[in-house]
Design a protein around this nucleic acid. Sequence first.
DNA 1: TTGATTCTGAAATAAACGTTTCAGAATCAA
DNA 2: TTGATTCTGAAACGTTTATTTCAGAATCAA
Lengths: 192, 192
Amino acid sequence: MARCVEFNEVEKIEKAMNVFWEKGYNATSIQDLVDAMQINRSSLYNTIGDKHQLFMKCIGNYFDNAMMEVKEKVSKYSSAKEALINLITDKAGWIVSCDKGCLGMKTIFEIAPDDCQVRNQMSKNNEVYIDFLKSIVQKAMDAGEMDDSESAEIMAEYIVNSFTGWKQAYILHQNPIKIKKMSEVLIKNIFK
Amino acid sequence: MARCVEFNEVEKIEKAMNVFWEKGYNATSIQDLVDAMQINRSSLYNTIGDKHQLFMKCIGNYFDNAMMEVKEKVSKYSSAKEALINLITDKAGWIVSCDKGCLGMKTIFEIAPDDCQVRNQMSKNNEVYIDFLKSIVQKAMDAGEMDDSESAEIMAEYIVNSFTGWKQAYILHQNPIKIKKMSEVLIKNIFK
DNA sequence: TTGATTCTGAAATAAACGTTTCAGAATCAA
DNA sequence: TTGATTCTGAAACGTTTATTTCAGAATCAA
């Protein structure tokens, strides 16, 4: 038998993720990555793969974490309406909480248009997220807490769309109050 | 006296803009640019400047064109409500009309967070656009064509936010019908 | 035509890029 | 301790990067 891997891959992936998060795919060099991951170049290539493979693992990890977190939070509320309001308010808070961009959105606009492997992964992730949101929206509609003149799916997409817009606005103007206001308008709009 | 510049700068800037549009800032090399612009390396550096300066000129040109176009279109309608509906419908059509991303949005997510020169320019552009939209929204409100329980500015931001979300959705799922539907929901929401 | 000036093309620069290689240290069952 | 195996660090690979340099062609007033 021989030596076995001495580092925790998930841990290293998370460190790499933070670099991609901050700088984006193209602006991140292998040097940046090995520095942040505290891993050897060879170990990186041997155990994880090249830059693109590492990136795929990062966005996978990013989504899994985000999805787990949101599911956990939602499970705390018995009312679908309350769960939605909290989900939206949380997102608005999250957007203004970090000045770096959002890895997901950055990836969609920077990489996805020209990289179908990334696009497929992001598209799948997005669908999973929207399906989840849709199920809560449906519950709210069934409970009569929400206007159901539009389908649950459309409403779910509508909500997710807003998040991207908020991040854009926050990157440009860095005004937390405006983002909070936007989230309130959204909540008002979908529940009237 | 000596020789004078033999190429039309604006024309060259436009060609460069298309490259940045397609590939984004970081993925575009000077080689890509001189190839597309059909200009010499030295001429580029002597008359326009380095990559970053060229990029700044490109996003300036991009915004000026977009702004001119939208103003021209809006001027055709005497009703503010009609103008807004057309502006929104147009944007939805534009989003699904080209498969490459949107230079503006790409720049905001890829470059703006880490490049304050770019961020300031984009932020200024965005403000100008929103101010313009706000003035139309205000007209629609004054004419009683639009619900005025929210300020014109908030409504203008709300509309612009949606555009970014649509582009994201289209990059991921390439479903024109969904984008059209989203624009209809927006129109329904802001005019009820 | 002259002469000062400016544009142009190609080559050169030095640094950074992603990736590979490989000798040697580390590990662990036998 | 041996021997097979695997991880590690550093160096090297060949490209590609953005930018500069410079000799010569092109221009135009005088």
